[in-house]
Amino acid sequence: MDLLTDLFSHHGLVAVAAAVLLHQLGAPLPSTPLLLLLLGAESATRDGFAFRAFVAITAAAMVANALWFWAGRRVLSALCVVSISPDTCVRQNELSFARRGVLTLLIAKFVPGLSMLAPPLAGALGMPAGRFLSWNLLGSAAWAGAGLLAGRVFHAQIDALLRGLSQLGGAALALGVAVVAGYLAWRLWHRARVRRELNRFERLEPADVAALQRQGCQVVFVDVRGGPPASRIPGARHLDLGALGDAALAGWPVEAEFVTYCACPNDVSAARAAQWLKARGYQARVLRGGVDAWVQAGLALEPA
């Protein structure tokens, strides 16, 4: 802890600005809220330090966000690839912009996940650069100011915590590593459990679905691909996974056999939709291989 205190006394601004820059570029660094709180506590005892810290943090965030903004749509899907359902990840953030517009840039840094996705999404949706920079500056400033203010208000408690950790010596470091490792292990376990549940969801081959239709079963296809598709399986209904709600099911026949499909790895988004439908009393299964498997089986599509 003495090393940490010395770091903030001599190189605090550079260290935190670098951490914020790397964090906003995507590195899993604890720049928020820990480092902002520590800088805020430091500013309580040094005149003029708070303003310099505020400028350094805001500037670092702006540089990283500007790079993501100009990268735009080319990297948006790559940022969502760590999600269990990447296409849903993109769609949910598109809807956030549709509902809130530029206000999304004001709150983005306070919302885990949205902070990384908002700048490239703004670029992908064609937001003018000047407008993006202005609103992102306000959002970055609000985020930096909130962290520094919290650190300044609670500087006495933060100082007491640092002194206590300093007395623990190496045990404090071991405890911190154990907490981080435990959290990461829990996240990985949770992710693996959800993926297993979705992969086990009942699936039908295209030929099986066609056989059900020939037998006279009322089969309703549910297209969960993001955005309006150019073509679809005949008669398919669209379900937006980014805006699920019971109102979307108005008029859907409860007695029908619903078959969800997507164009995503392992049919994950389709399994999510089928799981959601079953929870609401509908019979739902997944089309294995999605729309691509339907076409490869020689079955027809229709214009959407």
Rank of each mutant, 00 (worst) to 15 (best):
F49M: 09
P33L: 01
A15D: 02
P33F: 01
P33I: 01
A19G: 14
H23Q: 15
A50W: 15
A18P: 00
S43P: 07
R46E: 02
L37M: 14
L39V: 07
A17T: 03
V16E: 14
Q24C: 11
P28M: 03
D47W: 09
T32E: 14
F49A: 12
V14G: 08
L21M: 11
T32N: 13
V14F: 13
L21T: 10
E42H: 14
L29C: 07
A41Q: 05
L34G: 10
G26E: 11
T32F: 15
A50H: 10
A41P: 07
P33A: 03
L25V: 04
R46W: 02
T45G: 12
A15N: 01
S31Y: 06
A15H: 05
A17K: 01
L21Q: 10
P28I: 05
L39E: 12
L36Y: 06
G26A: 12
E42V: 10
S31A: 15
A44N: 05
A18K: 00
L21A: 13
G40I: 03
L25K: 02
G26K: 04
L34Q: 00
S43L: 09
A41D: 07
G40V: 02
L35S: 07
P33S: 03
L29A: 08
A27G: 03
A17V: 04
L22P: 07
V20A: 08
A27D: 03
L21F: 15
A19F: 13
D47H: 12
A18Q: 01
F51C: 01
P30D: 12
H23D: 14
Q24A: 12
T45N: 11
F51T: 06
V16G: 14
G48M: 04
L35R: 00
A19T: 14
P33G: 01
V14M: 13
L39K: 05
L22T: 08
V20F: 09
P28T: 02
L39M: 15
L22H: 06
R46Y: 01
L35P: 06
A17Y: 06
G48A: 06
G40L: 04
L34N: 02
A44G: 10
L22W: 09
L35I: 01
L37T: 11
S43N: 10
E42Q: 14
F51Q: 02
L35Q: 01
D47K: 04
P30F: 13
D47C: 02
L35Y: 07
L38S: 02
T45D: 12
V16L: 15
A44M: 07
H23L: 06
A19S: 15
H23R: 07
L21V: 11
A19K: 08
